[in-house]
Amino acid sequence: MAETQFAESQTIRVRVNGQEYEREVPVRRLLADFIRHDLGLTATHLGCEHGVCGACTIIMDGESVRSCLLFAVQADGAELQTLEGLADGDDMHPLQQAFWDNHALQCGFCTSGFLMSAVDLLDKHPRPSEEEIRHGLSGNLCRCTGYANIIKAVQAVAEQSQS
């Protein structure tokens, strides 16, 4: 059986949470797997690998993306942010603090994706209405909380930044 030959691997350079990485990766390696297993940044989780649940959401060049729907090679040259880069050491980002204060997490598996989606949402809409928050986070699934406290947490941060 004749198979078309592609390069099996490629060297990529990415900047993740401010740190430069240069790695050789198989061309079919998912960005999510690259982040989790090659870079050891396991705060990004995989819930469906179909691009539906949003657990793997990260920020790539200022846009929230699903890292399960991208190959690592597509991130070559990009600037990425994951949950590990959100806090300043152990000083929480306001969204992390608001999630804690509002009991916006239970099992925690979806939390990383929600935080990164919320970062992107507030970046683009600093004063979202409740409707806009619900819509903005509707690409992330949570099976534990029923969302109400996640919405409250995002509202709380939006209100803080206005005052």
């Binding site: 989790r36 396991t42 989780h45 995989l46 590990e84 959100l86 009991h103 997490l105 990383s112």
Partner: peptide, 21 residues
């Protein structure tokens, strides 16, 4: 009481089974 287990989750320090290498 706010949950004592939350900070490590929020800071991405959890270990689910797929995180184990």
């Amino acid at each position: 009481v706010r949950r004592v287990e939350d900070p490590r989750v929020l800071l991405g320090k959890t270990q689910y089974v797929d995180d184990l290498v």
